[in-house]
Every structure is written in C-alpha cells, then in structure tokens.
Amino acid sequence: MKDRETEQRLRREAKALLEQGKVDYIIGFETGSLKFTTTPLITKDKDSVDRLIINPFIVNNLSEYLTELKGRVGIVAKGCDNRSIVSLIQDNQVKREDVVILGVPCPGIIDLSKVEGLVGKDRDELDDVTRDGDKVVVTVDGEKKEFPASEVLFDNCLGCEFPTPQEYNILLDESSSLVADKTASRKGIETLEGMPQEQRWDFWEKEFSRCIRCYACRSICPACFCERCFVEESEPQWIAPVPRWQDNLIFQVIRNIHVAGRCTDCGECERACPVNIPLRSLTKEMYDLVDDLYHFKAGMDKEAAPLMTHYETTDPEDFIK
C-alpha cells in the first residue's frame, strides 16, 4: 500500500520536473519483462513517467547511468544508490546541480534467488511475492508461505547502514524500516576468514575459474567510471585479456582497490555476475577495511575529498611491511 502512494508521488514529481524543464531526463524503474523483474526506465517523455514503479524488486543502482547522460537528470535513488551519486559528485564525475535526487527510503530488496532456494521453485513458477513489514509472503500453487524478511533480502541490504537517502532534493516517503542482520550480511566473509589460507586460495581458484570476462561487474558498478580500464591496456599489459583464473583474480583484486572508498556496498557486482562468483565477499571486506582504517564511508559527504586522493599524517601505516 505504502509503495503505491510513494509511486503516485514519484510520478507526479517526475512529471512536474520534466514539464517545468527542470530536468532533461528521468531515470527510474518500470515493470520488467520477466516475472517480478524491474528494469531501468530512462526517459525524456513526460507521458512515460506513468510507467515508473516502486516495489520490493527495484534492485538496480541507477547512478550507473549518470556519467553517460548529458543534461540534467531526475533520478530515483535508494540509500545505497544515493551514496553512489554523492561519491560521483566527490569524484567530480557528476555536478550536484545537474541531478535532482528523488530519494526513496528503502526497506531492503528481495533476492529472488533466495526465495527460489527456500521454496524449491524457479521464480516464474511463483504466483506472488509480497513484502509485509518484517515478513515476505510467497504464494506458490495458491498456497501462502511466510518468511522473515531477513531470510530473503539481499545480503548487502541486511548490512545496510543508511537505507534512507541523506542527500536528496525530494524525499518520497518517511524513513524506512529496514530489517538489518549484520551477521547474516557478513556470513560469506566470515566463512572465508575462518578458512586456513591455503583452503581460501583453493576456494578463489575454483570460483574464478568460472569467470568468462563478461565484465558485467565492472559495467554495472557506478564506481567503475573510468573511460579506459587497466584491463584493456596493452602497454604495459597488466593482466592477460583471457579468462584464466589467475588473471581473473588479479582483475578483481585491482578493481577492488580502485573502488575502495567509492564502493557503497550496493551489491550490484555480485548480483550481475552470471556465473555466481561471490564478488561481494571481496568488496564488502574492502568496504569494512576502509571504514576501520580510515573511518571513511563512501558517499556520505559531497564536500569531502575522495579517500584515495588525499592522506593525513595520522593515517595508519602498520599494514605496510
């Protein structure tokens, strides 16, 4: 019910922004072509804003599109997307005055893969999946099954620190009631940390052997905004452009260092990976390291210098051996 009201307000605001010439584009979500799926809507047309939706499946981090659109943009942003926008402003990739942020307090996004695992059916065999407070109700073959939201939200949502946008022009709803479960959010990392080093190495060898170098992790990441990526450099060649596990691993290690202090733990890299490599175990670990070492959280202050562009004499250096 709440989503419907937010949705109506979003449509009104988006239409007004386009009609009054305050923005050239609206970026939001519309219904996707597969069951429960949503898809980005990027439009200049004031009539198509009636297709904008808000629901528990609006997963994409739309700030990904900001660096390629010319002109002023009205953008729908959840908490993590909002931080990505601020991070892009900090990195001078986007001007604050060029974006009208339509903030959506986010109660967490439903991970359909988790739902599939719990009910033992593929998503297109489910009749309905709805959010009801701290529960998610799944209807299969006419029968309703209830799950605690913490069991079916994306791992990164469970660890979300700022579900409500902090930097916005219009906040579409009151602050959200996210069901957080920090332990569950770090489960994959904890398992890896508990492994002896050799076993961890074997784990990543197996995982990265599947990588096909589609670069979806890089393409979908708002923090990966470089026009030229080190991967394609040939002089010098940093890594081989062929999908072998060693090179695939190095690709992710370097990518992680490049997005350190920019990554907002939106989880898009892991979600986009078609071969299910648990990439967030790397990015979330880096996110926490950045916080522990430098007390820095990406995208919290548009005036702050980006983490990797400045230093302080008090910065820790005991990890340099």
Partner: peptide
Amino acid sequence: AAKCISCGI
C-alpha cells in the same frame, strides 16, 4: 540502447 550497460553477458 539507453539502459544497456555494455557488458558481455
């Protein structure tokens, strides 16, 4: 093409 992210999937 607007929403394509130019990945190779």
